[in-house]
């Protein structure tokens, strides 16, 4: 063994080349700057009517309620040049990634996590990326994705809910309140609405032929307009207004 160790070891060109390739791959994976993400976090005291407005460009956005009387915004930034400056205006916390980064070139993904009291209103706009909002019971929940991304709204009890995307699914699990308005629209996504069986609303549902499944919420009072592509009717006393539209996907109503 000792003799073997002391004697020169022969490497073929192929062996050296593959060793170099492996080394290069390892180095790039281990490099601390290769995928470094900067994180920014800011807290604001919450007043009575909290409203958070977020205008993002790209990245995932998660909004959830918590029991503290404050708003916490955590942003993880992909590009070192990106800038995120949440501002407090009256009782509204506003984050404008687009405005904050004008002229800075490509700012990559900015992923947000927002924690706030459950009675808050949330207004989110982004160009791309998923949006998840859970357990919010304020006046407004708006999630608008210009292009692609899934929208998941769960545990929502707001008087106005608006969700829109182009490619991606929309899932709503919550309650329709009396006099409230609810709009869900996708170009190429499936829309699922999960609500209690005693929900009462006026529905306008539009989707390609045979792609609307109202299940338990179907009744004979529904008008079939446009050869099964549009249904209009009341469920219960129609106390809230619901509009669901998908150009290429399906619509499904589920009982909770």
């Amino acid at each position: 063994m000792s003799i073997r160790l002391l004697s020169p070891i022969r490497f073929s060109v192929a062996q050296i080349f593959s060793a170099l390739v492996v080394l290069a791959v390892l180095c790039s994976c281990a490099s601390p700057t290769a995928h470094a993400q900067r994180s920014v976090s800011k807290r604001f005291p919450a007043g009575k009517n909290v409203r958070v407005e977020l205008k993002n460009i790209s990245g995932t956005i998660t909004v959830e309620s918590w029991n503290r009387n404050e708003i916490k915004i955590t942003a993880s930034l992909e590009a070192p040049t990106a800038n995120v400056t949440p501002k407090l205006m009256g009782e509204c916390v506003s984050i404008d990634v687009m405005g904050d980064n004008r002229g800075r070139g490509d700012v990559g993904d900015v992923n947000f996590k927002i924690q706030l009291p459950q009675d808050s209103s949330v207004d989110i706009e982004t160009r791309r990326g998923n949006i998840t909002v859970s357990n919010i019971r304020g006046g407004l929940v708006r999630a608008h994705i210009t292009s692609e991304g899934d929208i998941t709204l769960s545990g929502i009890s707001a008087s106005q809910v608006l969700a829109q995307n182009t490619i991606g699914d929309i899932f709503f699990d919550g309650d329709f309140s009396r006099g409230g308005t609810y709009q869900f629209q996708s170009t190429k996504g499936n829309i699922s609405v999960r609500i209690p069986s005693d929900s009462a609303f006026r529905l306008v549902a539009q989707a390609p032929t045979k792609k609307i499944a109202l299940n338990e919420f179907w009744n004979n009072g529904f008008k079939n307009l446009g050869d099964g592509r549009k249904f209009v009717g009341d469920v219960g006393d129609g106390r809230s207004s619901v509009m669901v539209t998908t150009f290429q996907g399906s619509i499904t109503f589920l009982r909770r």
Binding site: S58, D106, G108, R127, E148, T166, I167, K188
Partner: peptide, 19 residues
């Protein structure tokens, strides 16, 4: 834009054009 954004844009315009 970065490549990802360009691809996203093209895909989504295509989806709307299909409609």
């Amino acid at each position: 834009w970065n490549q990802q954004m360009r691809d996203t844009f093209d895909r989504n315009v295509k989806a709307l054009d299909e409609t």
